[in-house]
Design a protein around this nucleic acid. Structure first.
Length: 552
RNA sequence: GCGCCCGUAGCUCAGUGGAUAGAGCGCCUGACUACGAAUCAGGAGGUCUGAGGUUCAAAUCCUCACGGGCGCACCA
């Protein structure tokens, strides 16, 4: 498809050159039309430049036809000037059918590109506080971040997935206090009422019990102090973090890097970032606090770094952490943030710029809220009340494949409703199975074919001439485009969308035409077509972290 | 009040400034005596929230209004 597009672009370009018309090759766009019946590829260039040429666009398009035909030769069977002045190109089917050979030669790697040229991308996501189980929105972030990383890799980037663990500060002490209170309870002391602001979740009881088993004697029930809280908090944080890691792994997500806030603090990263900003002249002292002059870089207000009580704000270790990302040699840094963190974008951009990095090398994407819906009713979650639906529960209820599919189906920055009822259905109403079913059907046909055929595989491109075969071929040929586009737009939702279309093209073909028939040549051609389709489904679902069953 | 995201079919959502705005679910009609009916063929269903503007061309870009969500800490 890329080749066809380039050839067409070049043909148009050279027509302009020959006729002394100036047009940037940038403006010559050759696209897959949004509707069928407008050719395989289309260009609106005549509409764009008609004015400067002082000629009606339609007439311009018509003038170009003979020369374009000559230039493009066998690649194209038809070119038409259509509508107000579009150029519509219809590709030769045998040429299109060559994708089958490409796909069969490259297998799972078909459609991958070198576009990224080995540039390094760091993508940080989830980074949930180690104070509780992962909630649903973390699942969405996990699916999106993981698939984005895979998409980048498929496009020639080196992409690392990173989880930042906030295992220092106040909340860890609070976690320690909660664990302490649960331990008291386990020893028979009633804690009533439960204090305000202390994590009420029942999962803390497990941690308390676990701690008691490992440290039966070396703590005192009667005299808790900060040291004890920190110790308990550290224990709880690591316990919960490791639990989160385990759930994420079950969800098909693994991280190359785990970065701990506590380590950064121990290495003196907060001090050194303040010092650096100070040397650059971006720090002021006012009202007993130290401020980062982030407004110089477009932030709404300046940000406190060191509070008047001498403690750092949360921003400081986080700033150090982000500076470190660039210093570790990443060319691009992507953060997937929760919806409650978008107030952070301004100051983080300011920081990156203040340190002399390029602000647009940091991309912050907001992963919007997920509402759980069942039977048209919203399933309420409340972290404060200790009642919330966890990612673990979601996985158990609907399974990994539907969960990932549903998360990836939607644009990440728009709020979504997750329809539990629909995701739970193991039937035709559930869109995940539509794609998987196509794969299972193909696998089944291939099994049957291999049982009776062991001869070398020979097939003839020209045999695939039916409209439904052509539609499937064309859809296959579009895959590299989709994959690249998904990386450019950072839009994982392009994959499920495309795979649905591919599956539809296959199902239609399959219902209409028999693959294994009396005609050996046609059979081989259709087997090859089916096999190529299976490769693309494997590739696409693989990038989404969704399984490809051979039978269902 | 200020900032960000969103507003598209009954519902959930796609939609790269281009032609007659799409998909899934739901609803209606039809298709298994050859490879898997978790499928296919077809139908109904739209003032793209509204009003201006830019453009040969706007769901898409700009301005304003309306509606929904989320942020606006010397919290983390």
């Amino acid at each position: 498809m890329d080749i066809a597009r380039e050839s067409i672009t070049r043909a148009i370009e050279s027509w302009f050159t020959a006729h002394d018309i100036h047009a940037d090759s940038e403006r010559i766009e050759v696209d897959v039309p949004s509707e069928e019946g407008h050719g395989d590829l289309t260009s609106s260039i005549c509409l764009k430049i008609a004015k400067s040429v002082r000629k009606p666009p339609r007439a311009l398009a018509e003038d170009m036809l003979p020369e374009l035909h000559k230039q493009l030769g066998e690649l194209v069977v038809d070119i038409e000037a259509a509508g107000p002045g579009f150029l519509n190109f219809t590709l030769a089917t045998p040429w299109l059918a060559e994708v089958i050979n490409d796909i069969r030669a490259q297998g799972i790697l078909y459609g991958h590109s070198r576009w990224g040229q080995g540039k390094r991308i760091l993508i940080e996501f989830v980074s949930a506080n180690p104070t509780g189980p992962l909630v649903i929105v973390s699942g969405r972030a996990a699916a999106v971040g993981d698939t984005l990383a895979r998409i980048f890799r498929a496009n020639g980037f080196i992409a690392d997935r990173e989880f930042y663990v906030n295992n220092a500060g106040n909340q860890i002490i609070k976690l320690g206090q909660a664990i302490y209170l649960r331990m008291l309870e386990l020893h028979g002391t009633k804690v009533e009422p439960w204090p305000e602001g202390i994590y009420p979740g029942e999962y803390i009881i497990d941690i308390a019990r676990n701690y008691l088993e490992k440290h039966p004697n070396d703590w005192s029930l009667s005299s808790p102090d900060e040291k004890l809280y920190v110790e308990l908090g550290d224990f709880g944080a690591e316990y919960l973090r490791s639990f989160q890691e385990q759930i994420l792994r079950r969800f098909g997500v693994e991280f190359e890097n785990w970065i701990y806030e506590k380590d950064l603090r121990n290495q003196g990263a907060p001090e050194s970032i303040i010092e650096r900003l100070g040397k650059l002249g971006w720090v002021k002292t006012e009202e007993g606090a130290k401020w980062f002059l982030s407004t110089r870089f477009g932030d709404d207000k300046d940000r406190v770094l060191v509070k008047s009580d001498g403690n750092y704000t949360y921003f400081v270790p986080d700033a150090a952490y982000h500076a470190g990302k660039f210093e570790r040699g990443y060319d691009w840094v992507i953060d997937l943030l929760g919806p409650d963190h978008h107030g952070y974008i301004g100051r983080m951009r300011a920081l990156v710029e203040a340190l002399g990095f390029k602000a647009d090398h940091l991309e912050m994407m907001i992963i919007q809220l997920v509402r759980l819906v069942r039977n048209g009713e919203v399933v309420r979650m409340s972290k404060r009340g200790g009642q919330f639906v966890t990612l673990e529960q979601l996985i158990e209820e609907v399974g990994v494949d539907p969960a990932r599919y549903f998360f990836l189906e939607r644009a990440p920055n728009t709020p979504m409703d997750f329809d539990l009822g629909l995701a739970e259905l193991k039937s035709n109403e559930n869109p995940v199975y539509y794609v998987q079913y196509a794969a299972a059907r193909i696998a089944s046909v291939l099994r049957q074919w291999r049982e009776s055929h062991h001869d070398p595989f020979v097939w003839n491109v020209d045999l695939l001439a039916e409209p439904l075969e052509r539609r499937l071929l064309f859809t296959l040929a579009r895959y590299p485009d989709v994959l690249k586009r998904a990386a450019i737009d950072k839009a994982p939702q392009y994959l499920p969308k495309y795979l649905t279309e591919l599956a539809a093209a296959f199902h239609s073909f399959y219902r209409q035409h028999r693959i294994l028939s009396e005609d050996p040549g046609l059979t081989m051609a259709r087997v090859a077509l089916s096999e190529a389709t299976l490769w693309i489904i494997r590739s696409g679902l693989g990038l989404m972290g969704i399984s490809v069953p051979e039978t269902m």
